[in-house]
């Protein structure tokens, strides 16, 4: 008993102050939302598109577009581009409520995640989610799971992962949706009472990621169920996922 108390004392209080305080430090080499500058782009170069593993980049006349829904944040394009037209920032706020908003262009980033007001009114400020891994590699799953630990303490926001879809307000889906998980995902979706929201976490769940166009998988959650929120990354940093969830419940607006 004494040892348990001693351990409690030694471990201290570890829950971060975010969002009331500053976000936790991100590693110096963290790859957040990329920025593109078409003006620096050399016509006809295409080095970035040639190295991109998931065809996330389109480079045309004076237009450079990077789809963060496909991006694995491997930074190959950043390294390949001698002109410095692509740079990964430290911006961790990356979620969006439409596929189009995930595409980075020269224009400033749009205000992120706008959840339908009616749905939010019904759900209130609590959110119960059922997680479904449908071909996820266990990285998105692990960094979603970590939000339940004392450092992040998701419970303080009224957000909880529940054991049954019937207790849930929505689904958080990871993985490209393998053909072998399609039926289970559909059944789980239908078991969630309406209105419900669906959050796709990670490049695989948004676009298939490296498994895009595999006959064994389905290019992401939206090919099987309607998706309301997209959280890019491979895997997204827990802070990116948390920020998206806080926007969903209306705790944060930007």
């Amino acid at each position: 008993m004494l040892k348990t108390l001693q351990a409690r004392w030694q471990q201290g209080y570890r829950t971060m102050r975010y969002p009331d305080g500053p976000p936790p430090d991100l590693p110096a080499r963290f790859a957040g939302r990329p920025q593109v500058d078409s003006a620096k782009c050399t016509a006809g170069c295409h080095r970035c598109t040639l190295v991109c593993p998931t065809d996330a980049i389109t480079a045309g006349e004076q237009t450079l577009r990077l789809d963060t829904g496909r991006c694995l944040f491997c930074r190959e394009c950043e390294t390949a581009c001698e002109a410095g037209a692509i740079a990964f920032s430290h911006e961790f706020r990356m979620a969006a409520s439409s596929r189009e908003q995930l595409v980075v262009t020269d224009r400033p980033a749009p205000a992120v995640v706008a959840i339908d007001g009616a749905v939010r009114r019904i759900l209130g400020r609590s959110l119960k989610l059922r997680q479904v891994s449908a071909g996820g590699c266990n990285a998105c799953e692990a960094d979603t799971n970590v939000l339940g630990t004392v450092g992040w303490d998701l419970g303080r926001f009224g957000i909880q992962f529940v054991a049954s879809p019937r207790h849930a307000d929505g689904l958080l889906i990871t993985g490209p949706v393998t053909e072998n998980m399609r039926l289970a995902l559909e059944k789980t979706y239908h078991a969630v009472p309406s209105p419900k929201i669906v959050i796709a976490v990670g490049a695989c769940a948004i676009s298939g990621g490296p498994y895009a166009d595999h006959p064994e998988a389905h290019n992401g959650a939206s090919s099987v169920v309607p998706v309301d929120v997209f959280v890019p990354g491979c895997p997204p940093h827990p802070l990116t996922i948390l920020h998206a969830l806080l926007q969903v419940i209306g705790r944060l607006s930007g």
Binding site: E179, N180, E216
Partner: peptide, 17 residues
């Protein structure tokens, strides 16, 4: 349930993926 066809896709590589 998690089968994504990785071993099939590795044949012909190495490539950018």
């Amino acid at each position: 349930y998690q089968h994504r066809g990785v071993q099939r896709a590795l044949v012909g590589g190495p490539d950018r993926r």
